[in-house]
Each structure stands twice: as structure tokens, then as C-alpha cells.
Amino acid sequence: MRGRLLIGGAVVVIIVAVVFGSAFAFQRRLIYLPSGGPVPSAAEVLPGGRDVALRTADGLTLTSWYFPVAAPRAAVLVAPGNAGNRSLRAPLARALHAAGVATLLLDYRGYGGNPGSPTEAGLALDVRAAREFLAAQARVPLVYFGESLGAAVVAGLAVDFPPAALVLRSPFTDLAAVARRHYPFLPVRLLLLDTFPVADQVARVPAPVTVVYGGADSIVPPEQSRAVAAAAGGRAVEVPGADHNDPVLLDGPAVIAAITAAAG
């Protein structure tokens, strides 16, 4: 009997070790869901659009889209979420262009045919390269806009390089908080390699912050987005009934209004 108990206990330990080990080893495949290519040219999305090459501090060349406008009132750096590539954000680029705002639509390393593999540190380098390009090109006030994971990316950027305004769509308080919602059986804070401490970072940003979120978000709990707005001392805008990936949160009226209001 004792031998069977020992064997049973050993099997449980092995299963737990395999589950935790797999969660640790493959976590970035669960966090980052890039689409490769092909990606259309910027000019196919909008006349006058430009494919641009961004050079990161660690030596990568990332292709992204830049959509200039005549006499822009501001320029927006768009940091996408964790899935797809910039082609999914073409409707957003068109809407912002129509509003008279110059727009840089970033694709991270590993996304849209770009080299490299995404990590928290890597995406921080990517968005810094994007900001450097946009500041040199536009020479007008900069607004940072990030969706979901991209909200975490621009929140980190805003600490070191404060924008004129920061607009976050469906942000989480930190990566562990949202991961715990979906994997409650795992000790996510011990396992995560990337942390993205959004709430802590926005509390240190001097720029005005607007948070737009869906009232029926099944990926990032609405209360987390509201907590980010509270930490920033900013404004929270709920889109009633909207889930995380609904089109209304891509280029809907509330999103565009928040960005254009931030642009002044």
C-alpha cells in the first residue's frame, strides 16, 4: 500500500512539473500571436502612405507604415495588440488620416514579416525606434495609442518619453493579473518572464491619460482597465456591450474620438 502511495505521489509530482514546465517554456507562444506576411504596402492602404524602416537599438530593421497628412495637428504612434499584424489596423489608420492626424502604425519584431522574436524588452526597443522616427518626421505633438498589449508597450515608453497625451484601449493592470484570470491554476507571477506593469507605469506619466474599454470584455476584465485609468488619474470611457476584439474597439467612434481629442 505504501509503495502504491509513493508511486501515486510521484506521478502527481511529475504531472505538476510537466504542466508548470510547459507553461514556463511556451508562455511567449501564448502571449504573442504574430501573423507574418505578406503585408500590403502603405500606399495600397492610403494614397501617400509610406513603408518605413525603423532601426532598433539592438540592430533590427522593422518595417512599419507611416501616413503623413498636410499640416497635422498632432501625430499618433499606434502600438498594436498581441495578435495579427498591421494590416488588421488599416481601418484605424484610415480613420485617423481622415481626422487630420499623422499616424505611424508600428509592427513589432516577429510581426508582419519583421525579424526577431517578441519579448517585453524587445517591444520596448521597437516602440522607442518608432517614437524616434515619428518625432523626427512629424515635428508636432505626439500622442501614444496602444491597444491591449500595446497599451502596456506605450505605457512603458511614456515613462521615459512623455507624450502630449496617452490613449490606452483595453489595458490590463499588469500581465500577471490578466494571466491569472485565464490560468487560475498556475502560479503566474512566479512563471512569467514578461511582466508589463501598466498601472504602476501610468501612475508616473505626467501626460493626460484616457482609457477606452469594452463593458463586456472577456479577455481583459473591465475592472482592470478602470483600475489603470484610476492609477493614472485619467478618464475612463466605457463602450457598453463591447468585447475585446469587437470592431467597435478597433476603429469605432469612442476610440477615434478619444485619440482625436487627445490630439487637440
Score class of each variant (00 low, 15 high):
142 L>F: 00
73 R>L: 05
240 P>G: 14
74 A>T: 05
264 G>K: 10
235 R>Q: 12
234 G>Q: 03
16 V>Q: 13
104 L>T: 02
20 F>S: 10
178 V>F: 03
236 A>C: 09
160 D>N: 11
133 F>N: 03
232 A>C: 10
99 A>Q: 15
215 G>P: 07
82 N>G: 10
153 V>I: 15
75 A>P: 05
202 V>C: 00
174 D>N: 13
2 R>N: 09
62 L>G: 00
226 R>T: 09
251 D>A: 15
141 P>T: 06
3 G>F: 14
6 L>H: 14
60 L>E: 01
40 P>F: 08
16 V>H: 12
110 G>C: 08
87 S>R: 14
153 V>T: 08
129 A>L: 08
252 G>W: 04
30 L>M: 13
65 W>H: 02
83 A>T: 13
182 H>N: 11
230 A>Q: 14
199 A>D: 01
67 F>A: 00
78 V>Y: 06
232 A>M: 04
151 A>N: 04
23 A>C: 11
144 Y>F: 14
30 L>D: 10
56 T>L: 07
210 T>E: 02
47 P>L: 12
204 R>S: 03
46 L>Y: 06
9 G>P: 04
183 Y>H: 15
238 E>A: 10
185 F>P: 03
43 A>C: 09
102 A>M: 08
210 T>P: 01
64 S>L: 10
184 P>S: 07
170 S>Q: 00
215 G>S: 11
73 R>W: 09
156 G>Y: 02
208 P>T: 08
60 L>N: 01
119 T>M: 10
26 F>V: 13
151 A>L: 04
89 R>M: 13
219 I>F: 11
102 A>V: 00
125 L>R: 15
104 L>S: 02
227 A>R: 07
255 V>R: 00
229 A>H: 00
27 Q>T: 09
188 V>L: 08
134 L>R: 00
224 Q>L: 04
183 Y>N: 07
131 R>C: 04
107 D>E: 14
80 P>F: 03
222 P>G: 08
130 A>F: 04
102 A>D: 01
43 A>W: 03
229 A>M: 02
199 A>G: 08
225 S>N: 05
12 V>A: 15
246 D>L: 09
200 D>P: 03
181 R>K: 14
61 T>Q: 14
255 V>W: 04
103 T>D: 04
112 G>W: 03
232 A>E: 00
194 D>F: 05
163 P>W: 01
123 L>K: 00
51 D>G: 04
209 V>K: 00
86 R>I: 11
182 H>L: 12
38 P>H: 06
202 V>R: 05
4 R>H: 12
111 Y>R: 02
115 P>V: 11
189 R>N: 13
184 P>R: 03
55 R>P: 07
96 L>I: 09
52 V>D: 05
59 G>Y: 10
134 L>V: 08
119 T>G: 06
222 P>I: 10
8 G>T: 12
122 G>H: 01
4 R>N: 12
235 R>M: 05
174 D>V: 01
222 P>F: 07
157 L>E: 05
149 L>K: 04
177 A>G: 02
83 A>I: 13
264 G>W: 10
141 P>Y: 06
7 I>H: 13
13 V>M: 13
196 F>S: 01
184 P>C: 06
123 L>D: 04
223 E>H: 11
143 V>I: 13
205 V>H: 06
30 L>K: 08
1 M>E: 15
234 G>N: 05
13 V>W: 08
63 T>F: 07
56 T>P: 02
182 H>T: 09
162 P>W: 03
57 A>Y: 11
220 V>Q: 06
